[in-house]
Simulated scan of single mutants.
Amino acid sequence: MKGLNTKERIRAYHDFCKKYGLDAKAFPHFYGLNSIAEGEQIAHWWRGQPNKPDAFACSTDYLAAGLLTEARRLGVSVPSDVAVVGFDNTEISHLLDLTTIHYPIDKQAENAFIMIRNTLEGMQEQLHPLAFKLVERATT
């Protein structure tokens, strides 16, 4: 929860909620979740809700993978009953045919190196722009 990526994802979430008049604090019990096991717990939570969300945008592919696989075990049809989107475009998203957000981690690593080198050597090398993209697969 303290990493720059996480902070930026949270900021983007709050910006989205503000733009569309949504309560960003409506589901505090979902903050900080990112494991497969926690995704499985979300599937059980979803199943027990009288007013079910139509979709989940998960903070990681692992959280989405747990949600997706447990939902299927519970007999939930994804994406007919609920859509699931991950984040990071890891190998698990490809294996599960999971819709995800591609995040250019290689360019982020290069930027980190450029920032360190700029600081240590007094350089002004420009950072690579980071382009995110939706990778549409079978869960949306």
Results as ranks from 00 to 15, higher is better:
A24Y: 03
C17G: 09
E136R: 12
L98E: 00
R47N: 07
A65F: 13
I116C: 12
A64M: 11
V84T: 04
L33K: 15
G66L: 12
D88K: 00
Y31H: 03
F30L: 13
I101W: 00
L33F: 09
R72F: 07
T99P: 02
A24L: 05
T119M: 08
E70S: 14
I36D: 04
E38W: 02
D15H: 10
E121A: 13
E121T: 15
K25H: 06
C17H: 06
L33N: 13
T69P: 00
E125P: 06
F113R: 10
E110N: 01
S93E: 03
S35W: 01
T6M: 14
H29E: 15
E136F: 04
Q126Y: 02
H128Y: 12
A26S: 13
P50N: 08
H94S: 13
N111T: 01
V135C: 09
G75K: 14
L68E: 04
A43Y: 08
I116S: 02
K52G: 13
P53D: 05
G48V: 10
Y13M: 12
C58N: 06
K52P: 10
L95H: 10
H128S: 01
P129V: 05
E40I: 09
E38T: 03
H94Y: 08
N51E: 05
L4K: 14
P104T: 10
N118E: 04
K133P: 00
D15T: 09
F27A: 07
L127M: 13
I92L: 14
A83I: 00
F30I: 01
A55N: 03
H94T: 07
P28F: 06
H44L: 14
A55K: 00
I10F: 00
A112Y: 07
E125I: 00
D81A: 13
R117A: 11
V85P: 00
G21Q: 15
G21N: 13
M123W: 03
A64Q: 08
M123S: 11
L67R: 03
F87Y: 15
A65P: 07
A109I: 07
Q41M: 06
L95Q: 09
K107S: 13
K133E: 14
K18H: 11
F16T: 09
A55P: 01
A131L: 12
A138R: 15
F87L: 12
L22Q: 03
V76I: 15
T100Y: 09
K107Y: 06
M123D: 05
D106C: 06
